[in-house]
């Protein structure tokens, strides 16, 4: 029987206070009417108004969104292929190198990835812009996608795939009709992970962005370097709100999906 002791209660309370109080302070001070971020001078939403009128931030947000959608979609396709090859591909020439290249970007310092990609783009004469950021982001996030998808591929029953093949499906049809629906939740979480990684990235984007393709993190970083500003607090609050809603919604949806799947399995077992 698990019981909550005073030690556990204290460590959980302090731990979650440590995790959440900084963000709460950030949110509270985004509604501060004073320009001084640290002194409370009354409630106001004027920084949100300033933010919406700030063209530079809006442009950067648009670039970031474009990069995130394109790169996470490419990363999902490539990462799913890579996972399928790793789990189902059998032996092929250079398999060790391949698996090394999938795991290495997960632990590579961002400054090195950014620098090396930039030097590549320069040496092949590719102008830096949205395309180069998309290529860079797709490369490192496909590795995350492939880890997420391969853990699902490893755990599912291969015999259903084989049954489809026995019943006359081509390998591609078997993948589309049987494998893909089963691994779909993992593919979707892989896409979401790639999307957030891309939204979040400062270092790799700084190396691979051109002057006309400033992303939101680059813009935030350059203004934050000069010190705290209430506008950035307002922007952060909006981003935290979006993430919170997104994470809670996906977790509720996946809970529902799991419940439905279990019900279907039960009904199938009874029939």
């Amino acid at each position: 029987m698990r019981r909550i002791t005073w030690f556990n209660a204290v460590s959980l309370t302090l731990g979650f206070a440590f995790l959440y109080i900084p963000m709460l302070i950030l949110i509270i001070f985004s509604f501060n009417s004073s320009k001084l971020v640290t002194v409370w001078a009354g409630f106001s939403t004027k920084w949100y108004g300033e933010l919406i009128r700030n063209e530079a931030f809006l442009d950067a947000a648009w670039v970031t969104l474009k990069v995130a959608v394109l790169s996470s979609t490419a990363a999902t396709v490539l990462g799913t292929m890579a996972a399928y090859v790793m789990v189902r591909g059998g032996r092929f020439f250079g398999r060790t190198l391949f698996s090394g290249m999938i795991y290495a970007p997960l632990v590579m310092p961002e400054v090195i990835t950014g620098l090396s990609l930039l030097l590549l783009f320069i040496s092949i004469g590719l102008d830096r812009g949205v395309l180069t950021i998309v290529l860079a982001h797709a490369t490192f996030s496909m590795c995350y996608v492939s880890v997420v998808v391969s853990s699902r591929l490893v755990s599912f029953d291969r015999s259903v795939e084989e049954a489809a093949l026995d019943l006359g499906c081509t390998p591609f049809e078997a993948f589309r009709l049987v494998t893909l629906p089963i691994i779909l939740p993992a593919v979707i979480s892989g896409w979401l992970l790639a999307f957030t990684l891309s939204l979040d990235d400062l270092v790799i984007a700084s190396f691979t962005a051109g002057p006309s393709s400033t992303t939101l993190p680059i813009k935030i970083f350059s203004s934050v370097r000069l010190g705290v500003s209430p506008e950035i607090n307002a922007l952060s609050t909006i981003m935290i709100a979006i993430v919170t809603v997104g994470v809670i919604a996906t977790s509720l949806l996946s809970k529902q999906a799991i419940a439905r799947q279990q019900r279907e399995e039960r009904e199938a077992a009874q029939a």
Partner: peptide
């Protein structure tokens, strides 16, 4: 679990920035 994972999905830059206002 969700309370631990939520900050992980929140922008890294924002989480670092939050401390600039606290520690100054």
């Amino acid at each position: 679990m969700m309370l631990v994972i939520l900050p992980f999905w929140t922008s890294f830059l924002i989480r670092v920035y939050a401390w600039m206002g606290i520690l100054s």
